[in-house]
Structures are given as C-alpha cells and as structure tokens.
Lab assay of single mutants.
Amino acid sequence: MSIQHFRVALIPFFAAFCLPVFAHPETLVKVKDAEDQLGARVGYIELDLNSGKILESFRPEERFPMMSTFKVLLCGAVLSRVDAGQEQLGRRIHYSQNDLVEYSPVTEKHLTDGMTVRELCSAAITMSDNTAANLLLTTIGGPKELTAFLHNMGDHVTRLDRWEPELNEAIPNDERDTTMPAAMATTLRKLLTGELLTLASRQQLIDWMEADKVAGPLLRSALPAGWFIADKSGAGERGSRGIIAALGPDGKPSRIVVIYTTGSQATMDERNRQIAEIGASLIKHW
C-alpha cells in the first residue's frame, strides 16, 4: 500500500482519535458579512469528516447552483462504474471539434489522439474542462443518470439537468442544476469515506481534487503551510461562485467545507476574496 493510499485508508482512524471539535460562531459572522459585502445569498456548511456531524452552517438547506462543483460527483459516478466493471479508466475516447464547448483548455489539445477516461476526469476536476465533463456525462448516460446515481446514494436534493455550459445559467428560483450545502457536503463525505467506492477509487477521487489547479484564489489562499486540501470550485452566471473541499491540518483532511453564493453584482475577484476570507476565519478558529 502506498503512503497516499495509507493516508486515505486511515482518515477515519486518525479522526477518531482527534480531540473533540467545537464550532466557532466567528466564522458564521464572516459568512454573514460576506453576504453584506456581496449583496447576495451565501450558503455555508462545515462537517466533521469522521462523524458527519454538522459543526457550523448557514442557509444549509437553500438551493444554490452547483456550477462546476458537480464534476466531482460526476467522476465519482464514473469511478463507481469502474468498480462495477462497467468502465475502464484506460479506455480512450475520441471526439471532434464539434464536441468542444466553451472553456476546454485540455480537451482542445487532444482532438487528434483523444483522451482516456482517467485523463478526462483529471481534466474535468483539476482544470474544470467543460468538454471533458460533457464527454464523461455521455459515458454514464447524461445528466439524468448522474441525478439517479445521487438518488441511489441517498441524495434526493442534488440534481443535474443540463450539460456544460448551460448548467451554469443560475436563474433565480430555478431548481435545475442545483444542490443544497448540506446535501453536497453529505454526498461528498460519502464519496470520500464511505463504502460506495473502493479504496482505490476513493484515493483516485481525492487525488484529482488535491491536484486542483484553478481554485488557488479561494480556500487555498488562506491555508497555512502543512495543511491538506482537496477541492473543486465552480463559477456561473449572475454572480455565482462555489467551492467544495476536504481539508485539515497535519497533512490530512478532517472536515468537509461547502460554500456557495449566487445573485451578486460583485466582480469575480471580490467573490473570490470573500470566500478566501471565510476560509481564513475557519482556519483561525479551527
């Protein structure tokens, strides 16, 4: 067993022997301040990774656009098919120029040779490549099948209805392509620590998230040296922004954090800054 596999296998073990965790309302004060600064709703939840206990939450059962955070769930569904012998990570998928959609920095470079399922998941999570996500959605049967996968996990809230990039439209009061912070946090925890996926697939999923290259201005910008984070960000229309993450000190994750916002007129930089400040408060009061 590799060191990384050992780390993920012992996530519940280490967490069980940690000192009790206590909620700190100071972080919620910052979440509410972010709402004021952005002029928009902000949803927040913080779960203990081992027990699933909610440590703090704000608007945990209000719907927010998922945006690209759905790509972690998508690759979880792909990995479940791999575990069941219905898919192979090494299978190569070929596609054409007509398949390319807006923001496809990886797939646009491989029109000639195609990409493997493993490479597509890596591109979808680490670079948020939209064509990679659409190609992977095709392998599982489309958005409705991802929703069905989530329902089978016990998540009857999260739903995907459309493809990239239309799913980022974020129309107010439109339930399409949305989740709730509580539902997303619980589902992410199941994917990373539950028995739904094999140990190898859980490790692969967290490795992809740990290698995320496009979430630097968010929670990662607030992390002290030595902290662990595996995350996936999302951005959408109407001032929408979000991030889902597993993080913790001492090089291992111990909490799940989900943050979503929508309806702001603020710039992307300002949305990023507010999420980073929430992260800084979380870490300060850990």
Rank of each mutant, 00 (worst) to 15 (best):
L167D: 03
E62D: 10
W163K: 11
L282Q: 06
D231F: 03
L74Q: 02
G52N: 08
A23P: 08
A222D: 09
L218M: 10
E35V: 04
T27K: 05
E108I: 11
C18I: 01
T131W: 02
A182K: 14
W227D: 00
K30L: 11
L55C: 08
L79C: 04
R159K: 11
R41N: 10
G85K: 11
R189E: 09
G142D: 05
E277V: 12
V258I: 13
L38K: 06
T158Q: 01
E175Q: 14
F22R: 10
M127R: 09
Q37P: 04
H285A: 09
G236E: 02
I171Y: 14
R92N: 09
S80W: 12
T193K: 15
T187D: 11
C75K: 00
H110S: 08
N168D: 07
T179R: 00
H285Q: 10
N134H: 04
W208G: 01
I11N: 05
T198S: 13
R273S: 10
V78E: 03
K30I: 09
Y95D: 01
R271D: 06
L192A: 06
Q88R: 12
H110P: 03
T261D: 01
G154A: 07
G141V: 04
F70V: 12
A200P: 13
E195A: 06
L79E: 02
R7G: 11
N50W: 10
P143M: 04
D48H: 07
E145P: 09
P65M: 02
G236N: 06
K53F: 10
I256Y: 03
E61T: 13
D155M: 01
V29Q: 14
H110L: 08
A182Y: 14
L282T: 09
T198H: 08
R189G: 12
K232D: 00
I45F: 12
A245F: 03
D33L: 12
W227I: 02
A225P: 15
K109M: 14
L28V: 11
S104Q: 02
E164S: 00
L73Y: 06
P224V: 03
S51N: 10
P217N: 12
I229T: 02
G251H: 14
A225D: 14
T178I: 04
Y44Q: 01
I11T: 08
A123G: 06
I11P: 05
E35Y: 02
T138K: 15
T69E: 02
D36P: 05
L205F: 05
E164A: 00
N134V: 04
G194Q: 10
D207C: 10
T69Y: 03
G194P: 10
A222H: 10
D83N: 05
D36Y: 12
R220E: 03
L19I: 15
L55Q: 08
V8H: 15
A266Q: 11
A183R: 09
L167N: 07
A215K: 05
D113Y: 12
A266L: 15
V82E: 05
Y95H: 05
A200K: 13
V106F: 07
G248E: 01
T193E: 14
N173S: 13
E46R: 04
F58I: 08
T179Q: 00
R118V: 10
A211V: 08
A133F: 01
M268N: 07
L38R: 05
L219A: 03
F58G: 04
A276S: 13
L199E: 15
A266N: 12
E87A: 07
N130A: 03
I244N: 02
T187L: 08
Q37M: 14
H5T: 12
P20Q: 15
M66H: 05
L188N: 02
L100K: 04
G90S: 12
A200Y: 13
V21P: 05
D99F: 07
L136T: 04
R238L: 10
L79W: 01
I244L: 09
H94M: 14
L167H: 03
C121D: 00
A183Q: 12
K232R: 06
E169A: 13
V8K: 15
L28I: 03
F6E: 06
D250M: 12
A170M: 07
G239N: 05
N98Y: 14
P181R: 00
S240Y: 03
L73M: 11
E164H: 01
A34Y: 06
P25V: 12
R118N: 15
T178Q: 03
L19K: 15
T107E: 01
Q97S: 14
K32F: 08
D212R: 04
N168Q: 07
L74C: 05
L74R: 00
L188F: 14
R255Q: 03
L73V: 13
K109I: 11
A266D: 09
P25Y: 08
M153A: 14
C75E: 01
Q4G: 08
H156F: 11
L136E: 01
L197H: 05
F14Q: 03
A34F: 09
S122G: 13
E210H: 10
D231C: 04
V78K: 02
L247H: 01
L111N: 06
T179N: 00
F17Y: 11
M209V: 01
V82F: 07
I140V: 09
M209Q: 02
M67V: 10
G242M: 02
I243V: 11
G90F: 10
E210T: 10
G234Q: 01
K252H: 13
A124F: 00
L74T: 06
R189M: 10
D155S: 02
L137D: 01
M180G: 11
I275V: 12
M66G: 06
H156T: 13
D48F: 03
T131Q: 03
T138P: 06
D207H: 09
L160F: 10
V106G: 06
H24C: 09
D36K: 15
D231I: 04
S104N: 05
D269E: 15
S80D: 10
P12E: 06
E237G: 14
M153E: 08
A15L: 15
D36V: 14
L38Y: 09
S80A: 11
E35P: 01
T147F: 02
V257L: 09
R220S: 04
P25E: 12
Y260E: 00
T178Y: 02
S254L: 11
T158V: 04
V258F: 02
E119Q: 14
A276L: 08
T138Y: 13
Y103R: 03
T193G: 15
G242W: 00
S201A: 10
R41G: 05
G76I: 05
H24V: 14
K144Q: 14
E210D: 09
V21E: 05
G76C: 06
A84Y: 10
P60F: 09
P65W: 01
P20D: 15
I11K: 05
E166L: 14
N152G: 13
N134S: 04
L205D: 00
E87M: 12
H151Y: 14
S122T: 12
P65S: 05
T112Q: 15
K109N: 12
L197W: 03
K30P: 02
R159I: 06
F22T: 06
K30T: 12
D83W: 02
L191P: 00
Q37G: 11
C75T: 12
M184S: 03
I244F: 03
I93H: 05
N98G: 10
P249W: 04
S221G: 10
M209T: 02
M1H: 01
A215H: 04
E166W: 15
M127C: 09
I243S: 02
R273K: 15
S80M: 12
D250S: 14
L219E: 03
D269G: 13
N272L: 02
N168H: 05
Q204C: 13
D129G: 00
V72N: 01
E169C: 13
T116K: 06
D48M: 06
W227C: 02
V117Q: 03
D174L: 04
C121G: 05
D174A: 05
R241P: 00
A34T: 11
E195T: 12
R162C: 07
S221I: 10
E119L: 03
T131Y: 05
L196G: 12
S254E: 13
E166Q: 14
I45K: 01
L196W: 14
I125L: 12
A200C: 10
E61G: 13
E166M: 14
Q203W: 07
T158D: 01
L167E: 03
A211K: 13
F70C: 08
K213R: 12
S96K: 10
E175L: 14
I206M: 14
L137F: 09
L188R: 00
A183E: 12
L150Y: 08
V72R: 00
R189N: 11
V78I: 10
F14Y: 09
